[in-house]
Design a protein around this nucleic acid. Structure first.
Lengths: 246, 246
DNA sequence: GCCGAGAATGAATCCATCC
DNA sequence: AGGATGGATTCATTCTCGG
């Protein structure tokens, strides 16, 4: 069994590759995560290939060119998402929930991947950031999306979470990770997760999901490949335990 | 050439099959439309019932006519969307814009189809209805989406439309079609369309797009297969011309 | 005309029942 | 792997209507 990087008060952090760790896990009730989007830019040269090629090494080739410029990264992103979603499915209990953030460009790919991984796709929820970067002549990209689903039928629950949640992105000192989500957004997403569930975030980053899950009374598990973020998250989570925490 | 059902003051309505009519058209600057979604429910039997019982179930329901073309399965929906988007592409000028409404379930299919039809997919805009019908334990489906793109590069314009638009759906006497959009929502979508453009809605319904396009100073063309809706739209549009219109 | 109370509404989803 | 039908459920917002 893999050794945790941090393990205290129902919070466990693993430092390592998500596939390796997921393979060892079981009994998860909910996956709530914000994976790297491999997005940005309409052309391949605009993208950072490193994050993708780090996880997937497949022979990439031109694929249905009539579907537009750049399907190579799209294809490997699809494969990679299918892989982690499938591993997550296998580590889950029956009736588990999966919620993954994504941007508009990869939304269709992720909705395919979630189903390819065995999950039942249940819907899309919208995080409205109020103001996206304005672009002349175009709709601003002011939203990110939560593609979500379940492992088989869902448990009956008496909550009615809104389908749109409006909240400004973090800024200033509160922001420790490029893609960091506000804690309020994570709490909103967690409202579809049963009380006392075991929540796992396989792409933990600075640990916002874990903080929100802990506040919701959940047991939680984070996985992160970058040790710098493991340390940062452990510090953030330990702070909360102190009596004089803010 | 096909005979118009209505043709007055820069507004033309064709009654007939959209493929037949689109084949005859040319010189369109923007397609703005709200096609039948062929959505609803997780089971085929839920999708194949009539639009009235599928989308509305309350006790004292005002009568609104059925609309056709809403019972395709995923595969034929994809093919059908590819066909009309391709026909629309062929009827378009260079730099034309396409904007099509869709719900969460069919968003990935439509984003594939728009690219299969030759368009460059530019993004997703969100119409937030504020509050959808609640479903226990799940995010309410409070949004519809605008999948949009262009024929080649876009013209430079000095407008900055928001990526999310919040507006309640029409109700009461103002609602004549089950899936009718508020005029304000159509005006928001039309903000990416150049001034004085020729706008076409190949699934006109009760004619909201045409009203909004006319108010925006556009020439407009509507196509509708159901004569009942052609009549309804013609009446709505003619009303606006009268000096004592409300 | 304004305000408050009560009623109606919704591009929904699931499931039991029937043929 | 059967397929269609109808009923039950839900609550913030919007509408209606009376005072």
């Amino acid at each position: 069994m893999v050794e945790p990087y941090y393990d205290r008060a129902g919070i466990t952090i693993y430092h390592g590759d998500c596939f390796t760790i997921l393979h060892e896990l079981e009994g998860i009730d909910a996956f709530v995560t914000d994976p790297p989007y491999s997005s940005g830019g309409a052309f391949r040269s605009d993208r950072t290939v490193s994050t993708v090629s780090k996880y997937v090494q497949t022979q990439t080739q031109a694929y249905r060119p009539e579907f537009g410029g750049d399907n190579r990264d799209q294809r490997s992103f699809m494969t990679w998402c299918g892989m982690w979603l499938s591993a997550a499915y296998n580590a889950s209990n029956a009736n588990a929930i999966v919620c993954s953030f994504i941007d508009w460009r990869q939304l269709p790919t992720l909705s395919d991947a979630i189903q390819a991984g065995g999950w039942t796709w249940r819907g899309v929820a919208v995080w409205s950031k109020k103001f996206g970067r304005p672009t002349p002549g175009r709709f601003s990209n002011a939203c990110e999306y939560v593609v979500w689903g379940s492992k088989g039928p869902m448990l009956q629950r008496e909550v009615y979470p809104p389908g749109v949640f409006e909240c400004s992105p973090p800024s200033g000192d509160a922001k420790q990770h490029i893609a960091q989500k506000p804690e309020a957004v994570m709490e909103w997403v967690l409202s579809v997760v049963p009380d006392g569930a075991t929540v796992c975030d396989p792409f933990m980053g600075s640990g916002t999901t874990l903080r929100a899950a802990k506040n919701a009374g959940c047991k939680c598990i984070g996985i992160e490949a970058d040790e710098q973020y493991c340390e940062m998250a452990a510090k953030r989570l330990q702070q909360d335990v102190l009596p004089f925490a803010t």
